[in-house]
Design a protein around this nucleic acid. Structure first.
Lengths: 115, 115
DNA sequence: TTGACGCATTCCGTTATGGGAATATGATTG
DNA sequence: CAATCATATTCCCATAACGGAATGCGTCAA
């Protein structure tokens, strides 16, 4: 056995910065591949490949329009992600007592080292 | 040039299912590595490696406790993720007129093929 | 000091992934 | 039909990433 099956899921799809850029762009309207690639400064094959990943996890949809293919956003797959991350909301809002004291300890150590 | 520098960021850190499991576990309390590994059914080196990634992006913190190292959650780094994904909220709540009709088209095509 | 324990790291093998260049494919136009 | 445009795919390379096994290292107890 070797690597875990990254089974390209939604989390994986949005882990790549350029794919996040694509999704953000598609919030505005549908885009044909070439235009999208130019707008984001990437080659056409590159755009197509990223779009494929996004399509496979269902975050974008395609619509044929003559010889163009218009890509549009389908954000529904992001909802579970939002919910999963949201499950930590009360933790980043917490006072983090132990964390605060931990950070204080670090600072103090550093100061002592600097002496 | 080859692969883009996945510069292990938070998105990447949570793209790995086992790391998400770890984070979820740490919501409860701090855990020493061995216990955490056993609880999640992974080997100790594996747990250590995942914990390292999480540590490097700042999602967990460590505290020395005798010969143990207690890992705890620091969820603050998840906030930007939550916000980024949240930027799509109105889209997954949308009626998706065009999307709906698109899905209808697909269904119809399929039915026609089945005939 | 010697073991034993807890954890991190290293080494190695395998697979996934992103990128480029070239090419295939499908549709439109002349 | 030929040429062209828009897009997808393939081939190949380099590297990142995960896993296992073995090992290093610090701490504590006897």
């Amino acid at each position: 056995m070797a690597r875990a099956a990254t089974t390209s899921d939604t989390f994986n799809a949005i882990a790549e910065p350029q794919r996040r850029d694509i999704l953000a762009l598609l919030r505005g309207r549908e885009w044909p591949v070439t235009d999208l690639a130019r707008e984001l400064g990437m080659s056409q094959p590159r755009a197509s490949k990223h779009l494929r990943v996004l399509r496979e996890v269902g975050l974008v949809r395609v619509r044929e329009a003559g010889k163009q293919r218009l890509y549009g956003l389908d954000a529904r797959g992001l909802r579970p992600v939002h919910e999963w991350v949201g499950g930590f909301e009360r933790f980043w809002n917490e006072s983090f007592d132990r964390l605060d004291s931990y950070v204080q300890d670090l600072k103090q150590e550093r100061q002592e080292q600097e002496r």
